[in-house]
């Protein structure tokens, strides 16, 4: 017994190093897996508070550009509204499946392989885990952790996330994944061989997911290759949105998700 205690005392520096190192490695591995409760997160009160102060200071520098972006978005929506074949009245909007909650991005990241984004809306605003977040010209990701006033979004620029997406022209779908390298390109994988498309076609969110509403534009086909062995296309998609310069986003709150989910469950039984 005394020998053991002596051993510990003699090697205390080495042992402490190994213990702390093991803890950090464990935390790192956890941060690379999706759907694991993460203790180290920027949603904690102090980090979110400081990042929010930083955002409040720097937002004024980008106000001009931000206004322009919002105006473009308005023009696009007005075009759709006034050129719609069937007039859109308020009852349609009230009856819709989703509501949108505007939010600001207080910390963005795009240079790592597993990127997360911090937004300034949380549980008290009705934002919860597994809600989708969209951008003026695309999609941002899925809410992964929510505290009272802040939420952490797992970005589409994260190698752990894959999102159902399809061609705009047809209903062929595949899964959207990032390779961890260029923040402007993402890959649409497992698109069946029977699909026909051209370079420059639009990719939109698919209808096989309860998280994202369908037909949100994501990007353009830039290049593609056919994997002869398995017969699936691998498509390089250029994102509409510049992910390195985003300021505001919309959390998509599903209103009838419970009904839809219960329907799926009864079908499976």
């Amino acid at each position: 017994m005394q020998q053991i205690i002596k051993f510990f005392i003699r090697n205390k520096v080495g042992i402490l190093f190994v213990v702390l190192f093991a803890i950090s490695i464990q935390l790192s591995i956890q941060s690379h897996t999706y759907h694991k409760s993460k203790w180290v997160s920027s949603t904690n009160t102090l980090s979110a508070f400081l990042l929010n102060i930083r955002y409040n200071v720097t937002k004024y520098f980008e106000l001009n550009e931000e206004n322009k972006k919002l105006q473009y978005e308005n023009v696009y929506l007005k075009k759709r509204l006034h050129n719609a074949i069937q007039p859109i009245n308020d009852s349609v909007i009230l009856d819709s499946l989703y509501t949108f909650k505007p939010c600001y991005i207080i910390s963005n990241s795009y240079s790592k392989v597993d990127n997360y984004v911090l937004i300034n809306k949380g549980l008290s605003d009705g934002v919860d885990v597994n809600y989708a977040v969209s951008l003026p010209n695309g999609i941002l990701g899925i809410v992964e952790k929510s505290t009272e006033n802040y939420s952490r979004v797992i970005s589409i620029l994260n190698t752990n996330l894959s999102i159902n997406a399809k061609l705009k022209a047809s209903n062929h779908f595949g899964s959207l994944q990032w390779d961890g390298l260029n923040p402007n390109t993402i890959y649409l994988k497992d698109l069946p061989r029977s699909a026909s498309f051209n370079i420059g076609d639009t990719i939109v969110t698919g209808s096989n997911s309860l998280i994202f509403p369908k037909d949100i534009p994501i990007g353009l086909i830039k290049d593609y290759e056919l994997n002869e062995n398995i017969g699936y296309y691998n498509i390089e998609v250029k994102l509409f949105e510049d992910m390195t310069n985003i300021n505001h986003a919309y959390v998509i709150i599903p209103k009838k998700i419970k009904q839809a989910k219960s329907l799926i469950n009864t079908n499976n039984e």
Partner: peptide, 20 residues
């Protein structure tokens, strides 16, 4: 290291390297 991790959402990446 862990203080930096708390802001960057990197788990224990900075903690491990600073510890080393």
């Amino acid at each position: 290291g862990i203080s930096i991790d708390f802001f960057n959402d990197t788990g224990g990446v900075h903690a491990a390297s600073t510890l080393l």
